[in-house]
Amino acid sequence: MGHVPLSWYLILSAILFALGVAGFVYRKSVITVFMSIELMLNAVNLTFIAFSYELHRIDGHIFSFFVMVVAAAEAAVGLAIILTIFKNRGTLQIDEVDSLKL
C-alpha cells in the first residue's frame, strides 16, 4: 500500500470532533461533558497539524501548541468550578444545574 492521503487525517479529525459533540450533547455527567470538550480540542489540533504538514509550514504547530496550553488551563479552572458546583448543589448532573432559566 502506498502512502496515506492527507484527507484521511482530516476525516479522522472530523469523526473525532463529531464524537466530541455527541458526547457533549448526550452525556449527563459534568465530568464526561468536559472530557468531550477535550476530545473536540484534540480533533482540532489534529486538523491543524495535518494542514501544517500540507503547507510545510510550522505555524500550524504553534497554533496547536497554544490550543494545548489553553485547553490545559481551561481544564484546571473548569474542574475547580465542577468542585464548587458539587459542593453547592450536591449533584453532578448537568440537567440539575439549570437555575439560570427564564
Binding site: 444545574v97 439549570d98 439560570l100
Partner: peptide, 17 residues
C-alpha cells in the same frame, strides 16, 4: 422566545450546533 432560555446546557449546546 422565552422558552429557549431553559437553563439546560445541553439544549444550548444543541442550539449552538
Amino acid at each position: 422566545f422565552r422558552r429557549y432560555q431553559s437553563g439546560s446546557i445541553r439544549n444550548y449546546a444543541t442550539l449552538i450546533l
